[in-house]
Design a protein around this nucleic acid. Structure first.
Lengths: 164, 164
DNA sequence: TGTACATATTTGTTGTCGCAAATATTGCAA
DNA sequence: TTGCAATATTTGCGACAACAAATATGTACA
């Protein structure tokens, strides 16, 4: 007879609850701006990238979506005018997703409120040292479960492939 | 011009990466046992509940699924014989989802490996004090973002608030 | 008592995502 | 150069989940 209340299970349960709760908490602000969670992630990753662009496959690697998933997210964002596709000059198979001015503006609209949300439920909730420890633990976990997840980042690109 | 690399954003990004990575890491073992993530969560919550049963709506509250989502999860699990529905004697609108013996056996099959996975990527990765701090931070977050998420738990409801 | 409102669950509909297959292009090697 | 394996993206398809409507039942109040 096993113990269904094993501390390891409750640890994961707590993490799931906290994570789901955070995402649910962020949703209203994003929804009000007409962005789904994944829309927001896509758009901000583009905003962070050089020339506000990323290849579809790199976007897939960064977001964890399948490549077909990325195709459809970009379809939607393109339909809304927040992103446009641009052909890759050096590889005709590939295409870039590029953040448009409208996309950037949309992002700038939500960001302040979103940052406030994060502050309210995460960064502002813990002391400086607590937060540091928390993020440190998360990094340890991430490094174990996600060997290479920074595709498309210029400097890390070669490194990521090397470790593959 | 806003900063798209705000530490608050990277904090959330790190949390998302770690969480997604963990779930992806757990998936193979569960899939091998014919259980999806949500199947497993449903089944273990039933296993933890008095008389291995929970009302559909309580299951919804605990898992975060919509009630229609629970209907369909239980449909699938019932089709597989892991769960059965049972009428509630005191309220003819309600019904219980009850873990069957087969469901319990299935759970006992995966649990050891699943616990090992959790150990490998979370609980065994951090020192005792790190883990305690980590869980403490998660509790703070959860208590802010998820006021009451323990529906159907008889005694634990008050306790959950007390540990805040 | 009976009427209106609240609650529990299911069903219809729609949107999203992953997998596999299809298509286009590249790069390597004979 | 030609042919073949590898890579980038898109499309077809099936599974899953949320929302709203439908159904059944319970509860409270006039």
């Amino acid at each position: 007879m096993l113990n269904f209340d094993d501390p390891r299970l409750t640890a994961i349960g707590l993490l799931s609850e906290a994570y789901a709760g955070l995402m649910a908490r962020f949703q209203p602000v994003l929804t009000a701006a007409g962005l789904s969670e994944i829309d927001f992630e896509t758009v901000i990753r583009l905003a962070r990238s050089p020339w506000q662009r990323l290849r579809m496959s790199d976007l897939a690697a960064q977001t964890g979506l399948s490549t077909s998933g990325v195709t459809r997210v970009v379809d939607r964002l393109e339909r809304e005018g927040l992103v446009r596709r641009e052909a890759c000059p050096t590889d005709r198979r590939a295409s870039y997703a590029v953040l448009t001015d409208a996309g950037r503006e949309r992002l700038e609209t939500v960001l302040p409120q979103h940052l406030q949300d994060i502050d309210d439920c995460l960064t502002g909730l813990l002391s400086m040292s607590e937060l540091e420890a928390f993020l440190g633990s998360l990094r340890k976990i991430r490094d174990v479960v996600r060997p290479c997840a920074t595709a498309g980042a210029v400097e890390t690109d070669a490194e990521a492939r090397a470790t593959s």
